[in-house]
Amino acid sequence: MSLKNVRWVIPVVSVLLMATMFANPAHGSLRVFACEPEWAALAEQLGGDQVRVFTATTAFQDPHHIEARPSLIAKARRAGVLICTGAELEIGWLPLLLRQSGNADIQPGQPGHFLAAEQVERLEVLENVDRSAGDVHAAGNPHVHLDPYRLLRIARAFAERLSEVDPDQANVYRSNFATFKQRWQEAIQGWESMATALKGSRVVVHHSNFSYLLDWLDMEVVADLEPKPGLPPTTAHLVRVQATVKAEKPAAILLSTYHNDKPARWLADRSDLPLVRLPFTIGGNDDAKDLFSLYQTTVSLLLEAQSQTGQIND
């Protein structure tokens, strides 16, 4: 074979190889569009090698206040299944993103459209919804992922959904769920025995995004830094919270990564309360790498804060 022949063989072969790479559905063929990191982590647990997961937001972004950016539309265009929180959390951008995606598979009502919060009962469901009460949602508090029991139910439903969307790999999704379920249940026992000391302790929060966690751990919220859900804290409101803190003597102030820490710091400085930055979701701190470590670090941070109560936190 002459050199001249070899020269055109190489590009042709590489094009064919690339074509087979794109055509080969064996590895990571199902594209998952996850609105939040916790659902991306769940999709990875259940999908394993069968899925390619894209996460629309990070732990440092408020999933209620992002935009349907060009990069997100491009990812939604090719997704086979979408997993989002729902309960109106993504109302400001997801409907538009779906309309612009030109992707029939992930539209509402399709099997490829999975909303986690709709799989479980929600807390703080309001009878009368009026915006004078803040940026509230008729569908209840959407931040369901920090209750391990609800998360397990969501995982079960999502494994079934993956099996429906990608029936060829249904066995893989179901066996991944079985493994996850066993590990998760063992982990819950661990966290619950760790967290017995937290039972009944009182905290101040910034936004109602830890309601499910606190409900699970039997902890109590005495004050919220936000005057109304979704509205930035005001000085007048913080002064009121300060009075509540004096009366109720909570153990800590809880804050998630995407909130400004100024109001919480202001209160921490005046009340000697430890300020606890909880990861809230995957990537929210260096330890929260998957769902297991997210819960582990959350419970640890709460325990650490409780042991510090009464001491000045810097």
């Binding site: 937001t57 990070t58 440092f60 972004q61 408020d62 206040h65 992002i66 935009e67 995407y258 400004n260």
Partner: peptide, 11 residues
């Protein structure tokens, strides 16, 4: 062109 620290436009 849009900018927000870490993609969080709230602050």
């Amino acid at each position: 062109y849009k900018w927000a620290p870490q993609g969080n436009p709230r602050e």
